[in-house]
Amino acid sequence: MNAPHLHYLTTSALALLLAASGAALAQSEPTALVDQQHCMFCHTRDAPFLAPSFQQIADRYRDVPNASVMLEHKLRLGGKAHWGDMAMPLPADRGGPLTPEDAHTLVQWVLSQ
């Protein structure tokens, strides 16, 4: 195999690896949890509705130390509004309590937006 073909194959393989790793970083929506908790009643992925979009939440908290712990706590217990007028409803008003694991799953998904 000559050098140009080897370079092309190496570059192509590297591009595929980078694309695959980027896809692995993007988490798929935990649809059952999103539906159970009625997240889409107040949030959308990319535009404010009754509450901030998931992208806005991710932009605000993605790089904040311990933000995931705070967000998981807020998801599990409800809480006052951090911006705007809409507070996070109590779990009983959203579809029931969340386990710490389910809260973690939802928050990690939101922060991956």
Rank of each mutant, 00 (worst) to 15 (best):
M70V: 14
L77M: 10
G78I: 02
V110N: 08
G96H: 01
Q113H: 11
L111F: 04
D102P: 00
E101C: 00
D35P: 01
A58S: 15
L14M: 11
Q55T: 14
S12L: 15
L106P: 02
T11Y: 03
H7R: 12
H104F: 09
R94Q: 07
N2Q: 00
A19R: 06
Q56Y: 10
L71F: 11
H7V: 07
Y61A: 02
G78A: 05
F54I: 04
D46I: 06
G96Q: 02
Q55S: 11
R62L: 10
P52G: 03
M86L: 12
P97N: 09
V69F: 11
A51Y: 01
Y61Q: 03
F54H: 09
L25E: 13
A92V: 14
Q36S: 10
L18Q: 09
H43F: 00
S21F: 11
N2K: 00
Y61P: 00
L33P: 03
C42K: 08
A103G: 04
L50A: 10
L111S: 05
C39Q: 04
D93Y: 10
F41Q: 15
L98C: 01
P91Y: 02
G96N: 01
L6S: 01
P89K: 05
L77V: 11
A51T: 05
D59N: 14
S112A: 14
E72Y: 08
G96E: 03
Q56E: 14
M86V: 09
P91K: 04
P30E: 03
P52W: 02
G22S: 12
F41I: 13
H38C: 08
A32I: 09
A92C: 04
E29P: 10
G79L: 06
I57V: 15
L17W: 03
C39V: 08
K74I: 10
A92F: 13
L111N: 06
H73G: 03
V69E: 13
L17R: 01
A92K: 13
W109N: 01
G84Y: 07
S53Q: 05
V64L: 05
D63H: 15
N66I: 02
V110T: 10
D35G: 09
A51R: 06
A23F: 15
P48G: 04
S21R: 11
S53T: 04
A23M: 14
I57D: 01
H104S: 14
R76E: 12
P97V: 11
A58W: 05
E101Y: 02
A26N: 08
N66C: 02
R76K: 12
T99P: 00
S28K: 13
L71D: 09
F49E: 14
K80D: 15
N66Q: 13
M40N: 14
A24S: 10
A15F: 08
E101S: 06
A13D: 03
L16G: 06
K80L: 14
W83R: 13
T11D: 05
S28C: 07
H38Y: 08
K80G: 13
G84M: 09
D63A: 15
P91A: 05
S21I: 07
H38W: 12
L16H: 03
R76F: 06
T11I: 07
D85V: 09
W109L: 08
A81Y: 02
A87I: 05
A13V: 06
